[in-house]
Amino acid sequence: MKKILIVGANSYIGNAFEKYIMNKCTDQEVIQSKDEIIIEKVQASNGDWKYVNYEQYDVIIILAAIVHQKEKSGMEEIYRQVNYNMPIEIAAKAKKAGVKQLIFMSTAAVYGSVVTHITKDTVPNPDTLYGKSKLEAEYKLKEMDTEEFRVAIIRPPMVYGEGCKGNYTRLVKLATYNPIYPKIHNKRSMISIDRLCDYMEEIIRNSSSGTFLPQDEEYTDTIMMIKSIREAQGKRTVLVPGTAWLVRLVMEHVGVVGKMFGDWWYE
Rank of each mutant, 00 (worst) to 15 (best):
M105V: 07
S106P: 06
S106N: 06
S106M: 08
S106G: 05
S106T: 08
T107A: 14
A108N: 12
A109M: 11
V110D: 04
V110E: 03
G112M: 11
G112C: 13
S113R: 13
S113E: 14
S113Q: 14
S113K: 14
S113M: 10
V114S: 13
V115F: 00
V115C: 12
T116G: 00
T116D: 14
T116L: 00
T116A: 07
H117A: 09
I118D: 08
I118Q: 08
I118M: 07
T119D: 05
T119F: 03
K120C: 02
K120M: 11
D121I: 01
D121P: 00
T122N: 10
T122C: 11
T122K: 09
V123M: 14
N125P: 00
N125T: 03
N125E: 11
P126W: 08
P126L: 09
P126H: 10
D127L: 07
D127K: 06
T128S: 15
T128P: 04
L129S: 00
L129N: 01
Y130K: 09
G131Y: 07
G131R: 03
G131Q: 10
S133P: 07
K134P: 04
E136I: 01
E136R: 04
A137F: 06
A137R: 03
A137N: 09
E138L: 10
K140H: 13
K140P: 00
L141C: 07
L141G: 02
E143I: 10
E143S: 13
M144K: 14
M144L: 15
D145H: 06
D145F: 02
D145Y: 02
T146S: 15
E147M: 11
E148T: 12
E148R: 08
F149W: 05
F149N: 03
F149H: 06
F149Y: 11
R150S: 06
R150D: 02
R150Q: 13
R150C: 07
V151K: 00
V151G: 00
V151N: 00
V151C: 01
I153R: 05
I153P: 02
I153D: 02
I153V: 14
I153F: 06
I154D: 03
I154V: 15
R155V: 05
R155P: 00
P156D: 10
P156V: 06
P157W: 05
P157A: 12
P157T: 09
P157Y: 04
M158S: 05
V159F: 04
V159T: 09
Y160A: 02
Y160F: 15
Y160D: 01
G161S: 07
G161W: 03
G161V: 05
E162I: 13
E162V: 11
G163D: 11
G163M: 12
G163S: 12
C164K: 06
C164Q: 15
K165C: 00
K165P: 00
G166V: 09
G166W: 07
N167A: 15
N167C: 11
Y168N: 13
T169Q: 15
T169Y: 15
R170S: 13
R170A: 12
L171Q: 09
V172I: 14
V172G: 01
K173G: 02
L174Q: 10
L174M: 15
A175Q: 03
A175F: 09
A175T: 06
T176R: 14
T176Q: 14
